[in-house]
Design a binder for these strands. Sequence first.
RNA 1: GCAGGGGUUGGGGAGUGGUUAAACCCACCUGUCUGUAAAACAGGCGCUUUAUGCUUCACAGGUUCGAAUCCUGUCCCCUGCACCA
Length: 431
Amino acid sequence: MNNKFRNIIEELEWRGSLKDYTPGAKEILIKDKITCYNGFDPTAKSLHIGNLIPILGLKRLQNFGHTPIIIIGGGTGMIGDPSGRSDERNLLSKEKLQENLLGIRKQLELFLDFENKKNPAQIINNSEWLSKINLIEFLRETGKFFNINTMLNKDSVQNRISREDGISFTEFSYQLLQAYDFWYLFEYYNCNFQMGGSDQWGNILSGIELIRKKNPSQKHKAHGITYPLLTTSNGEKFGKSIEGAITIDSNVTIPYKLYQYFFNTSDKDVLNYIKIFTNISVSEFTELEIEANKNASARNSQKYLAEEITKLVHGEKGLEDAKRQTQGLNFGEWEILIDSDYDDLYKDSNTTANINKKLLQKGIDINKLTVDYYICKSIGESKRLIQQGGISINGIKISDEEKIVTINDLKAGKVIILSKGKKNHKIIKVQ
RNA sequence: GCAGGGGUUGGGGAGUGGUUAAACCCACCUGUCUGUAAAACAGGCGCUUUAUGCUUCACAGGUUCGAAUCCUGUCCCCUGCACCA
């Protein structure tokens, strides 16, 4: 893990994690030690893997002696960011927001160093100041610096205005609040850098402009950098699976799922992802790259990526569990699964379910089973898949579309592993 | 508000009285091959008691032996004009 990079810019550029930057930003990051912030809005109760990019960005800054600040958007979360949205957000209730806030805060604490004497990370909730804003004062002292024409020209706003539903004043105001955050941090926390996804570029610039206008004497002191937004080479959104976002909360996305998600990264993306998500050094990377070109079928890069990320997010034990469960589920080696694996897999309701023992003693129609446990959408689909050889129990393909599943189909006397294709499994436990 | 165009199965988009559960493309699913890939190929993609069965083409009625297709009303969208500025 030793870092051969001379400075943060060199590292970010090599990792492909730098997209836009304000003039002079690079030089300052190389020469000085700065304080930089990145905001996270509590829209869900867990961060998803896309959030790892800014988190790692802050961490890398910290490694080079800069001071990271994480803003969790207790205030801005009340409003909703229109960027990248095609419709108005539903406002979250205050209780929900609070719950999300706590969850995210806890997760963020895992990644950065808060103990360090020199440049400890901080987590700050922007409701600290946003909730105290007085409307009249805000309009006079901050709103005055925003030009509606400029605001209207933003893509995020334009997109919404051209739609039938338009955009509410509330969301339209979001950019003011984010700019205000930056100004506030600049003023009271000596923070003059903001980092964010490239979709935040406009918001970041607004903040810089506000700072400039409010402090005419300190021209060009605030800066921003962005990292590119990740999409897969197929143009899909990164971090989304069929069942929803891949999160870093082991109760929502179990380590096995996380591992699988990255293991299934395509060859085209995997090397880029490794640079972005892991701390791989240039020399290690070169080695891996050569190996990947020579012997792609070994999938060493995917394995490396999946292992590193699982370890980063869930630790050594999480990784071990994920690998064992992979072996058990994806290769049908159910014997190696231990009791706690079932418990783990049980946290993911997409993968597991319970069945009443009596039902099994009577016997249950295979098609009913697949539909009841959400493997198939309809009995018709189930029959079709059986004809096509797409349904299996405990790794054995079912050929009889009228099959009655009974107690004799249990593995180890306690579970049925019902699968659609090679990757969709449902572990059904008898109770 | 007036005039014109339009709302079809996840998305796009054919179809303007009858073998139309509805062309085609994309997305998606399964299988073969394989590397738990990609590509390619094969199959599939409203529901079920698989039947000359049931429910679908914005919504509600109507005409007809028969309607996604015709009529009436309602809702929504797009374009032009007007109003407003």
